[in-house]
């Protein structure tokens, strides 16, 4: 197993930390400060991003911060694994929420997951709305493209 593959499998987001964990946690967060402190903490759970993967192909454009995204498809188990990195902490946290929802799913399941609805539920929709130039939307499009391409290959 390569170091990179290891990093994918060690990612706790979407495996150890589940969507239910996040939704439950949000229930108890009263004000914006607590919510963002939690989002920042989630961002800290992103596993280290392999330096050699910081190349143009993996760069997500359209973000104020630098965003990198790579994937690994486990053929035998039909699972798509994702790694994301950003130099902005809020973007890292929001990326973590995206990973909690999408990481380790089959491409088919991934494509039926409604991220917009999730962000609306968490009252974070403004971050992913097309009017915000923070790249969240670009990130989700990239992930969906990867899943769609994988499905086509099957």
């Amino acid at each position: 197993m390569t170091v990179q593959t290891r990093a994918f499998l060690d990612n706790p987001l979407g495996t150890e930390t589940t969507l239910k964990d996040v939704l439950d946690a949000f229930e108890f967060l009263d004000d914006w400060e607590e919510r963002y402190a939690y989002i920042i903490d989630l961002g800290k759970q992103l596993p280290p991003f392999p330096d050699e993967a910081r190349v143009e192909d993996n760069y997500v454009h359209g973000c104020q911060s630098q965003v990198w995204l790579i994937h690994h498809y486990d053929d035998a188990r039909d699972r798509l694994y994702l790694l994301i990195d950003s130099d902005a902490m809020i973007v890292r946290g929001l990326a973590a929420i995206i990973l909690v929802a999408l990481n380790g799913k089959s491409p088919r399941d991934l494509l039926t997951t409604d991220i917009d609805e999730l962000f609306e539920q968490l009252d974070l929709f403004r971050h992913i709305s097309p009017t915000r130039g923070n790249g969240l939307r670009a990130m989700v499009s990239r992930i969906r493209d990867i899943a769609a391409a994988q499905l086509e290959r099957d």
């Binding site: 914006w32 963002y36 104020q64 902005a88 902490m89 809020i90 130039g133 923070n134």
Partner: peptide
């Protein structure tokens, strides 16, 4: 990161530019 500053000021009703 400037974008973190912008997002968290916006939460407080304060509009600045970042980037």
């Amino acid at each position: 990161h400037p974008s973190d500053i912008g997002t968290l000021l916006d939460q407080q009703g304060i509009a600045i530019r970042t980037g």
